[in-house]
């Protein structure tokens, strides 16, 4: 029988995040959590759960509704030797804290000539699909990936949720950790012992000979479902989970395109000026360009705020059938 440390259990994505937080706090007394309703309430999505009771109110700090203030609190604590992990209830709320995240956290190390470090993590759920409408459903990760000084990650599986979060907490830089609301209850194999998934590394989720698809967050799940459907038609799609938007794993992308000669990028954020444009440009500027047999395709969120009505909400972001259809066309040659 495996002992508790080597055991692999099926746990949820939310439990995996909580386990990472718990193990980081056990290992390092500088690590603490702060956020709105993360204490007795257990977090708006229940992610922090019982951590308040296990670690106490001094390390699981319930804050007033002051996003700018608590973001600055994390910055100040980080530059003076602590390792804050901040939670925003919805990633949309980070916009109330843009000043501290973008003007302060991202730039302090550079502005000070390398004489300060800002080891902080901001965790927050993004994405649509819960009927929360336009101000609680956005996918804003590309905004932040545009800012030098920030790191941006998006775990798609429970395994990566734990491993990427532990790596983010270890990292000496500000890391924005975009969870996905619809993934919180999904289950996966997660080792009980602490482990790290390096920031900046993509992973091939499904090996294939036809068009690789680069996907992020929940779009990885949908793309794998599309790939399974297409396998029955003899189309063998390769699926890459990007995991980190900044730093971005160029070699994995380039290698895959060289092998298959095609590329589709699937993401929930608004398609226009999004991560798909960056990945397309990376390929177009790389040695993989000569290997392309068809134009690169993007499938992202529509150019609209997220609507409330569930039919409209689904229509606003890529669904499995949309991915299947575009892949079929791409492999057919155009």
């Amino acid at each position: 029988m495996p002992d508790a440390q080597t055991a692999e259990r099926e746990i949820t994505y939310a439990e995996a995040v909580r386990e990472a937080l718990s193990q980081a706090m056990e290992a390092d007394e500088r690590v603490f959590l702060l956020g709105e309703d993360i204490g007795v309430y257990g977090g708006a999505f229940g992610v922090t759960g019982d951590l308040y009771h296990r670690f106490g109110p001094e390390r699981v700090i319930d804050t007033p509704i002051s996003e700018l203030g608590i973001a600055g609190t994390a910055v100040g604590a980080a530059i003076t030797g602590m390792r804050p992990v901040l939670e925003f209830q919805f990633s949309d709320f980070i916009m109330l804290a843009m000043e501290q995240i973008v003007n302060q956290a991202a730039k302090i190390r550079f502005m000070f000539g390398g004489k300060a470090t800002v080891p902080m993590v901001v965790r927050m759920p993004g994405g649509s699909g819960t009927g929360a409408a336009a101000q609680h459903s956005q996918s804003l990760e590309a905004w932040f990936a545009h800012v030098p000084g920030l790191k941006v990650v998006q775990p798609a599986t429970p395994y990566d949720a734990k491993g990427l979060l532990l790596a983010a907490i270890d990292d000496p830089n500000p890391v924005l950790f975009f969870e996905h609301k619809l993934l919180y209850k999904t289950k996966g194999i997660v080792p009980a012992a602490p482990y790290r998934v390096p920031l900046g590394s993509a992973v091939v989720r499904r090996l294939g000979s036809a068009a690789p698809v680069v996907a992020t967050s929940i779009m990885v799940t949908r793309t794998l479902a599309a790939a399974d459907a297409l396998a029955g038609e003899g189309i063998d799609v390769e699926v890459i989970d990007l995991r980190s938007l900044r730093p971005i794993d160029k070699p994995t992308l380039i290698e895959s395109v060289q092998k298959t000669g095609r590329l589709l990028v699937v993401y929930e954020g608004v398609q226009t000026l999004g991560i798909g444009a960056e990945i397309s440009a990376i390929i177009a500027e790389s040695e993989a360009f000569d290997f392309l047999d068809a134009p690169i395709r993007r499938l992202g969120g529509r150019d609209t705020p997220l609507p409330y009505n569930p039919i409209l909400e689904k229509a606003a972001v890529p669904q499995t059938d949309d991915i299947t259809a575009i892949l079929r066309a791409l492999v057919a040659g155009g």
Binding site: F32, T73, A74, V75, G76, M82
Partner: peptide
């Protein structure tokens, strides 16, 4: 810009 950061510095001193 420094005002919220001061809160974190004070919290860190206290912790």
């Amino acid at each position: 810009g420094g005002l919220p950061i001061a809160v974190g510095v004070g919290l860190s001193s206290k912790m």
